[in-house]
Design a protein around this nucleic acid. Structure first.
Length: 467
RNA sequence: GCCCCUAUCGUCUAGCCCGGUCCAGGACGCGGCCCUCUCAAGGCCGAGACGCGGGUUCAAAUCCCGCUAGGGGUACCA
């Protein structure tokens, strides 16, 4: 097998959609697996909708996720000469022709057909015209009127379509600018693409493009049409109801390797294996293992996956990865207590953002504001004595670390014949003001001796005394 | 309307090509239990699917046909 050449060809008209990232990923993985070349081509022929900003978003998203192109980015807007040359060839060879029908005429015929409930197809009035009036025109390809096209799709299998389905498609607009179906084919030929791997929303374009290959006298690449990704509503993922931008996932605190693993598992599997490293993926991935049916993007599973990957890291690595999030929350990641706090929060966070937010619990070292309900329930009168006694006991500890604190507390409890479950929540409320936090001993270690004892005593004082 | 694609637990999927080993396996989610100072994490257990109807066959999730349902396309967008 010769080394494959594949491409990702997004149009810069908005965010980089996770569905696009997945299509790109399948291309990239295929290239990596078989020692091929991955090319990035920006399809910006629709100048009204394309923006530089969007191009940058695409580049940024791909860099973030680690899919750097081997060649490109190429911009279709800079390749006009190529398209014009191929267009002239087609015209000269009479494989394409100038069509002088105006937009309005065509629109009228279409409306007419719709009114009669008939399928509209351009009637080819200009196909065999021999005159050349000095009027604006559009260039159309002469497509076969009979017969069938066969697509041997790597994921969909054999697809056969009748040629009477198509009209003579437009190659270049009235202003001379080339149209998508033409530029893709010209570029894929020029860039010697061996495998066209894209979403199956393009499956309907493929027969037309196959005809263009033959008009242009070029060999056919292999095609692989990937199933779509749907939202929970069963429809195409939409900006309206879902988070779809890859950069948004980044900003929410998902890891790029999470996105990669999750996205590749939408439509591809390797037995029962759930976890993959990027290296593994580049050794295992193959287009022939891609399922043909659409998949639903399950945010719950994404969260689980991200949390899983977060928990695999060492606390130091996790802190480093969460750096920008920690800073955003106003904390210096190098502060000494941060590492311990990250460790304590690690099993409790599914995203870097959640982790950073969790850290805020430890920033304020002054008096605690108690959650009203929590205080009423746990800071009862008997806690005056317990909390005070515990504070006195812990005051004797010099090595204010979780293990020592735990040992001392356990001994203390035993002496007084109290149970952890009787003092645990009161302590927690005393320390953080609420009923949810990491282990008390971790919390105390993070706060340090002075703050911890002060808070324990403050809570004891706060608890109501006997009437 | 017409064309194309798809169809295994709620979701992602294994199995389907090469029928029997599948009273269908794994994972997320869900329920329960354990652990436990709360919440998580972790461990264990459980409920949960071959869309329907016809064939073919000794035997079908697996092969064939039809239906139904869902999705996509039908531009001088990409």
């Amino acid at each position: 097998m010769t080394a494959p050449r594949v491409r990702f060809a997004p149009s810069p008209t908005g965010d980089l959609h996770v569905g696009s990232v997945r299509a790109s990923l399948f291309n990239w993985l295929y290239a990596r697996r078989f020692g091929g070349t991955f090319i990035l081509r920006i399809e910006d022929t629709d100048r009204a909708r394309s923006t530089d900003e969007s191009t940058n978003v695409i580049l940024e998203g791909m860099r973030w996720i680690g899919m750097e192109p081997d060649e490109g980015p190429f911009f279709q807007s800079q390749r006009g000469d190529l398209y014009r040359a191929r267009l002239d060839e087609l015209l000269d060879a009479r494989k394409a022709y100038r069509c002088y029908c105006t937009k309005d005429e065509v629109a009228a015929k279409r409306a007419d057909a719709e009114r009669q409930k008939k399928l509209y197809r351009y009637d080819r009035t200009c196909r065999d015209r021999t005159d050349a009036p000095d009027l604006p025109f559009v260039v159309r390809a002469k497509l076969p009127e009979e017969g069938t096209v066969v697509i041997d799709d790597l994921v969909k299998g054999r697809v056969e379509v009748r040629n009477d389905q198509f009209d003579d498609l437009i190659l270049a607009r009235q202003d001379g600018s080339p149209v998508y179906n033409f530029t893709v084919v010209v570029d894929d030929i020029d860039m010697q693409i061996t495998h066209v791997v894209r979403g199956d929303d393009h499956l309907n374009n493929t027969p037309k493009q196959i005809h263009l290959y033959s008009l242009l006298g070029a060999p056919l690449p292999a095609f692989a049409h990937l199933p779509m990704v749907h939202g929970a509503n069963g429809k195409k993922l939409s900006k309206r109801d879902n988070v779809v931008s890859i950069l948004q996932f980044r900003d929410l605190g998902y890891l790029p390797e999470t996105m990669l693993t999750f996205l590749v598992r939408l439509g591809w599997a390797h037995g029962d294996q759930e976890q993959f490293t990027v290296e593994e993926l580049t050794q295992l991935f193959d287009l022939k293992d891609v399922r043909p049916s659409a998949a639903v993007f399950d945010e719950k599973k994404l969260d689980w996956l991200n949390g899983f990957k977060l928990r695999e890291m060492t606390p130091a690595a996790l802190r480093d990865r969460a750096r920008t999030f920690i800073e955003a929350v106003g904390i210096d990641p190098e502060t000494t207590w941060v590492l311990r706090a990250v460790e304590a929060l690690q099993p409790r966070a599914n995203t870097l953002l959640q982790l950073a937010k969790g850290l805020r619990m430890f920033t304020d070292r002054g008096p605690v504001t108690y959650d009203e309900k929590a205080a009423r329930k746990f800071l009862k009168e008997e806690q005056r004595e317990r909390l005070t006694l515990l504070a006195d006991r812990l005051a004797e500890i010099d090595d204010f670390q979780a293990p020592a604190l735990e040992a001392a507390t356990m001994a203390f409890l035993e002496e007084h014949e109290w149970k952890m479950k009787h003092v645990g929540q009161p302590c927690r409320v005393a320390l953080v003001g609420g009923t949810v936090s990491p282990s008390l001993f971790d919390v105390m270690e993070i706060f340090g001796k002075d703050v911890s004892l002060a808070r324990l005593r403050a809570a004891a004082a706060f608890a109501p005394s006997e009437e």
